[in-house]
Amino acid sequence: MRTPRPLPTVVALVVLAAAASVTVWRPWEGSADAAGGPAGISVSRSQCGQGWTDARTGRQTLTVHNTGDAPAEVDLVDVGSNKVYGEVEGLGPNTSAAMAVQLGAGRYAIRCLIEDTDVITGPTVTVTGDGQDGPAVVPVTKNDMLPLVKKYEASVARGVADLAVKTDKLRADVDAGNLDTARTDWLAAHLAYNSLGAAYDAFGDFADKIDGSAGFHPLEKGLWHKGSAAALKPIADQLAVDVHGLQKDLPNEQVDPNDLGLRAHEIMENALQFELTGENDQGSGTSLNTALANLNGTANVLAILDPVLKPRYADLPAVQKWEDRVRALLTAHQNTPVGQLDRTTSEQLDGAVGELLEKLAPVATICEVRRAG
């Protein structure tokens, strides 16, 4: 599995029953030095939220300005519910950034999260009027995520144990010269690895050893392009060694809580880029099988995250809808090389995965751990 590409820095959130989207701003993209710029709403240890004097209902863009000497995160929150209506991350000293929000009548405050400082909540600002408020997200805390991470790590440990068994069988096939059987067992082991999903970024160097330029891919190429058992034996042996090395090292590898939500999107993004294009295919013609294993990995992540997502993500049923659609298409065309798909099927697959990715995009931001108070 390739190293995942980062998600776009501007991500849409859909949360709660009445929600549609919340924008998260990454101010290092396009933020101007505040010198000579607008004063805006102050962010510092001593002036958090000062200067918000034109609060009103409806859509508006606020300017927040870090007047302190340390980087900060800035949230606009509902005082009663603690819902976040807007946020700016990584706001450096003497830097301004725009925060676009949509507010209804209510009581709001600016919350400043400054390095090495307890959370600071600015003065309450009462907003009146008839404007409709926009979407908001209830913050996810570290305590919310830690039990889910533990549950996922246990699931990964079971998956790696299964992978080790399948890889040992593959190695035995190659060592004995049973290459026809090895092709069948290669696929079983490869799919076991690709179903691990969100954990792969926690595998360190083992990821490349197992499923990068070494490991499964050169073994696939040799098995499907008349490689000899003698030539393939050291590759299969090393693959088994690396899988067992991963299994032994797994207790030392930790899944970052923020990685779970991020990987839910990136697993399928990689499947779209590398499997549905056939780029990773080294001769087995099983890229769609691998994409289905990736989808299983995504489904496992979503099942783990369900306690956090269900009360926060109104469009979660649409995620399931498109997951089912992608699963049906991939299942119907397993063992079909991507290059042999007709145009209609290829377009259906690309379109369904694209829709699924759109629905998965907010998951990372919803599940991002925040200091809430």
Rank of each mutant, 00 (worst) to 15 (best):
V138E: 12
W52V: 06
T53C: 01
Y152R: 04
V119F: 03
D162G: 06
G30M: 07
Q47T: 09
T126M: 12
V255R: 06
K166V: 04
T181P: 01
N270V: 13
P218M: 11
A154L: 08
L292K: 14
A55S: 10
V64F: 04
L357F: 14
P218L: 09
G204F: 08
L341P: 08
L170T: 02
A240V: 02
W322E: 06
T128E: 13
L260Q: 09
I267P: 04
A12W: 07
W186K: 00
P317M: 10
N280F: 13
A240R: 05
T167G: 02
E89K: 15
Q238S: 13
A198K: 01
L7N: 11
Y85P: 09
A328P: 03
G227T: 08
G37T: 04
Q50K: 00
R343V: 10
Q334A: 09
I110E: 03
K359L: 08
A372M: 09
I304G: 01
G197W: 02
Q60S: 10
T298R: 03
A17K: 08
D324A: 15
T298V: 11
A328G: 07
G159D: 11
L356W: 09
V369E: 00
A176D: 14
V119P: 05
V77G: 04
R370V: 13
P123R: 05
L7V: 06
A199D: 10
V15H: 02
D350A: 14
V11N: 07
S346E: 13
N296S: 14
T298W: 03
E355I: 08
V125K: 10
T121H: 02
M145Y: 11
A231Q: 14
V24N: 04
S155K: 13
S21E: 11
S213H: 07
D242T: 11
A291Y: 03
E279M: 11
L13D: 07
R171P: 01
K221F: 14
L288I: 09
D211A: 13
R107S: 11
A352T: 07
D118G: 07
A328M: 10
E269N: 15
K310M: 12
R45A: 15
Q273D: 07
P147L: 10
E279G: 08
A188D: 12
V22Y: 03
D175F: 07
R327N: 12
A188V: 01
T95G: 03
S155W: 10
L13G: 03
E115D: 13
V338M: 04
R171T: 05
T63R: 05
I366L: 14
A136M: 02
C367W: 01
T95E: 12
M99I: 01
